[in-house]
Amino acid sequence: MKINLKVNGKDHTSDVEPMMSLAAYLREVLLLTGTHVGCDTSSCGACTIKMDGKAVKSCTILAVQADGCDITTIEGLSQNGEMHPLQASFKENHGLQCGFCTPGMIMTAENLLSENPNPTEEEIRHGLEGNFCRCTGYHNIVKSIQHAAESN
């Protein structure tokens, strides 16, 4: 099926099988491998991207459902070579170890802060309910998001 969509500001037209998930489309067709697949069934959050302004789990969306949508992946978060404040904060606060959950974590945090620029610790922790990290114990992830919120 033919789909037209915008990814990280660039228009794409592709012919895809309906079985293909949006995560697989981004990774395999557009070679945007920053979007990771950890469970493929919408639990772990590693595949989180922004679709029409909202964080969603791209493993549980068919590529064909994204026809006409505006997508941002982790690769599109930096602007003009400048890291997004969340990216910078994750580095500054050691908010990642193996890095596999990190893109999804950052994309979720971006949604969280866009709707609630000054979240409490509890709101941040609750906001990360859909993202698993096995390395950090979440400690420095929460700190990273707090820090990004404060510096905004």
Binding site: T33, G34, T35, T73, E75, Q87, K91, G99, P103
Partner: peptide
């Protein structure tokens, strides 16, 4: 971290 936070890590499935 620079490669991980920008989605440029290189994992096997990539």
């Amino acid at each position: 971290d620079d490669r991980f936070i920008t989605g440029k890590g290189k994992y096997t499935d990539d």
